[in-house]
């Protein structure tokens, strides 16, 4: 995995330390369900907003950058989204899972912006068939953890995954890496039916079936 700067928030020991330093505030919220945190945010609790920002901004930023590799744009869209949420906080609905909700809102915000900009600026990418979007890697040097797949095999799997359509890759990565449910993926990708998201992943994996099944040498 290529790291562009330091490590992402949430995944390093330093951020574990950071969490501890904010212990009092953070504990209050980590013990609560998403639903409760969201309710606190809606009632104007600034600490709840701080918690939400801290917890999700890194993933949202990374997600946006997969689609459009211009940091400025992604930051502007994040800013706009969070400001809008705060402005309308009292009017917002209930939310069961904050992450899925933020991904949906952010995705919408970003595409709205990209569509508008594309009219003005023809260089901006076309999202539907772009090979460089949502590229997948078969991660870490898991050589030792895994029993079934050799390194070469993993490279082969990665290659096959990256030949899938952008939408399939996006759904796969959101399902396994972002841990969103099919329902949430359908919402983010703007499918009217959950089944569409499910089928997208299933078809993709069926294509790769032969690669998975060949026994190791």
């Amino acid at each position: 995995m290529k790291k562009t700067q330091n490590k992402p928030i949430e995944t390093t020991e330093s951020s574990a330390m950071l969490y501890m330093q904010h212990s009092q505030v953070m504990i209050v919220y980590t013990e609560k369900s998403d639903r409760e945190v969201w309710a606190s945010f809606k009632s104007g609790d600034e600490a709840a907003f701080n918690y939400i920002y801290r917890k999700y901004v890194a993933d949202l930023f990374n997600y946006g950058m997969q689609i459009c590799k211009q940091e400025e744009i992604i930051r502007d869209c994040l800013q706009k989204m969070f400001i809008d949420l705060r402005k309308n906080q009292a009017k917002l609905g209930d939310v069961q899972r904050i992450k899925g909700y933020l991904f949906t809102v952010f995705h919408r915000e970003l595409f709205k912006f990209l569509k508008k900009e594309k009219k003005l600026n023809a260089d901006l990418i076309s999202i539907d068939n772009e090979e460089s979007i949502f590229c997948i890697e078969t991660s870490h040097e898991t050589k030792l953890i895994d029993e079934e797949f050799a390194l070469e095999k993993k490279a082969e799997i990665a290659k096959a995954l990256n030949k899938l359509s952008t939408r399939q890759r996006q759904a796969i990565i959101m399902l396994y890496q972002e841990e969103l449910s099919y329902k949430e993926i359908a919402e983010v990708m703007n499918f009217s039916e959950v089944k569409t998201a499910r089928t997208l992943v299933y078809r993709a994996m069926e294509k790769l079936k032969e690669i998975f099944e060949v026994e190791k040498a």
Binding site: E46, V57, N62, I157, Q177
Partner: peptide, 28 residues
């Protein structure tokens, strides 16, 4: 299990500490 665990972003983009803070301040 392995396939699910191994799938990751090829490139992960990281918000710098500075950008993280600036963005937060701007929003607030």
């Amino acid at each position: 299990k392995e396939i699910i665990a191994m799938i990751d972003y090829k490139e992960r983009y990281v918000l710098s500490d500075q950008a993280y803070m600036d963005l937060y301040e701007d929003i607030v």
